[in-house]
Design a protein around this nucleic acid. Structure first.
Lengths: 362, 362
DNA sequence: CACGTCGATGTTAGCGCAATCATCCGCCGG
DNA sequence: CCGGCGGATGATTGCGCTAACATCGACGTG
């Protein structure tokens, strides 16, 4: 079980000064491809081919090589491999924060699609701050990804310029835009906000409220929500920015709505976790849902199904966004002509018990 | 803004055959350290020093180099850098699945601690399957991490052998063991199960039940729970393995407990999400909590605080586990003598309304 | 039987960067 | 004025691997 330096056959042309220097530096102790080659009685490139393109090596040779690999516990150095082949096999994924379940879903969709092609994803979490998004981009770019998928549009001009300069496919997702960097896979947040406002109004809501975060997508939902409310002739909705996406924050937001606008009869919270917090707060306060106040969310998370009543929500096909984004990237990497640059995956409103049913059209 | 091939000063000793070959291969189009050096009128190594050890370069030179970097949009190739320096700056983190919030907390604890030292984490998610854990390990090992942190003990002998052979610090976490690979940071799951059984019995529970997953930690909690129940002289608890950690599964498990052992008066679900699902199911069924049946969980997740009644749970300091594991790794990398090999961070039981209060000791 | 062909394998030359050691230059004391 | 010293900078070499081309032998063909 000796994995030491002195394997038979390690070429050592002549032990002059440079070679001694090499001895000193090569202190990793791990077996290298050359050690495997020596043990298998072949050359390094044959070992490489055995691993990357087995069909190019006869079965007998392959067997010897694989046995040598096994015996030495050889594990190829990926950094060296990417450097030499100029293929890193990395897809960089930029995500505001992975702790939001719908984003985790999208990442899962990307991972599932991409793994089949032997690519790995490199996750960068920029916590909703544009400053560190740029910093993060530098770190990711240093890894030489073969493509980049961003959850959300890339707004900061410096970041856009950087991504463009990388010369690799870029997918922006979870939103739509006219000013795409490259490819876009998403849906209309204003449309989703509008659909929910119409649903609440159709169920008899007269004084609507919107609660959401401060990010651009939430702002777009708010805008769509307010515009549709006005079109429906119901009370112009108000908006309260929330700091986080958790139950406590939803409860706090609901309390604030009730205090500031007691007659509110329907609240759209821009994510299911907030909506669940609001629903639980209503129950604590004895406010009947949906009769006194209707509650709706977005994201179709498990909790909105599990509570009683179920929370009306908007399903946004988070995993499909990931899948389609990854497929677009793979097509690009294969050199296929790009299909549509902007892919709208839409959304669907799922009515549940937390909002009043929409009367059937006569 | 031309970033092309023909920058002034790019050394081209003589245009013979090998050089043409180089021209063909070097098709990345991205500026290299040599391009920066040429533009700044220095050598490559000075550019390298400007970035890695600015103090070794005079301010004037540094300024010229930084300007050249800016102008070319140079981003160092991390793979080449690690290959040359034999330092990858990567800490590999093995985690069953990042979708479980407590594990995400631990990862966050690692990230926070490690980032300050300029190290990055490389996350590997093995989905609770030992087979793919080994496969994953090979992929991670190929990246030459400088240390490895595993959420959970590493059980599979092949995986243990592989990790040992890597010659880097290894931390197993979230559990304790006598047979550590290297370092261990965690707490006793049997102890946690026992503490909860004693709490439920002290509150008057006479027929306890345990619900949990099939992983080793859940099994240890079950064992500790049952043993303590027997010691307390209350009904030997039963255990039902659950498939997932979500609300629906918790509801299903509760239904099954009630059906199979209707007189059960206290249930410990081995994670808060299951406990929340069980609590909601009790409310749907009109079972008074905690009077008819007490519910307890583990993990101190937000939901167990937000529901009414609050769910009694065990706080396991998930983030601290990550932090301490990372600190142990950093100490090792700095060459410090290892402190305690096994670090027990304990746990604390948080009583809430979902279990009957423990009467004060006379 | 000479010759082209094709598949298996080997040789050479880097990929882009940093460790090592050499060099160079300014400055100081004797 | 010389030697020595120390800080800044540079030339060389190789990290571990694979692309590109070279080679070699077996085989079929005219």
């Amino acid at each position: 079980m000796d994995r030491g330096q002195s394997l038979p056959g390690r070429v050592a042309p002549d032990r002059t000064a440079p070679d001694r220097a090499a001895q000193r530096r090569r202190a990793s102790g791990r077996p290298r491809i050359e050690d495997v080659a020596a043990l298998a009685g072949t050359s390094a490139i044959t070992v490489s081919r055995t691993l990357r393109a087995p069909a190019k090596v006869t079965e007998a040779t392959r067997g010897r090589v694989l046995r040598a690999i096994e015996q030495l516990g050889y594990i190829p150095d990926i950094a060296a491999s990417s450097l030499a082949s100029r293929r890193t096999g990395i897809i960089a994924v930029l995500v505001p924060t992975i702790t939001i379940p719908v984003f985790a879903e999208t990442v899962q969709g990307i991972t599932d699609t991409v793994r089949a092609e032997g690519l790995q994803i490199l996750l960068g979490d920029y916590n909703y701050s544009d400053a560190s998004e740029r910093e993060l981009l530098l770190a990711l770019a240093g890894r030489r990804p073969e493509a980049i998928i961003s959850v959300g549009l890339v707004q900061e001009p410096a970041a856009r310029a950087l991504l463009r300069g990388l010369g690799v496919p870029v997918v922006e997702s979870w939103d739509l835009t006219d000013d795409a960097l490259d490819l876009v896979v998403g849906f209309s947040h204003a449309g989703a906000g509008g659909a929910m406002a119409r649903h609440l109004a159709a169920g008899g809501g007269r004084r609507l409220a919107f609660v959401g975060g401060t990010d651009r997508r939430a702002a777009a939902r708010a805008a769509g929500f307010v515009a549709a409310a006005i079109e429906c002739g119901v009370s112009a909705a108000i908006a309260l920015p929330t700091a986080a996406s958790n139950l406590a924050e939803g409860a706090r937001a609901l309390a604030q709505v009730i205090e500031q606008a007691p007659q509110t009869d329907a609240v759209f919270l821009s994510d299911d976790m907030l909506a669940a917090g609001a629903l639980l707060e209503c129950q604590r306060r004895g406010l009947a849902v949906p009769d006194r106040i209707a509650i709706a969310g977005l994201g179709n998370m498990e909790i909105s199904r599990a509570l009683s009543p179920g929370i009306t929500t908007i399903d946004v096909a988070a995993r499909a966004i990931g899948r389609r984004a990854a497929e677009a990237v793979l097509a690009r990497l294969r050199g296929d002509a790009p299909g549509a640059t902007v892919l709208d995956l839409g959304f669907s409103l799922i009515p549940r018990g937390s909002t009043r049913p929409v009367p059937a059209v006569a």
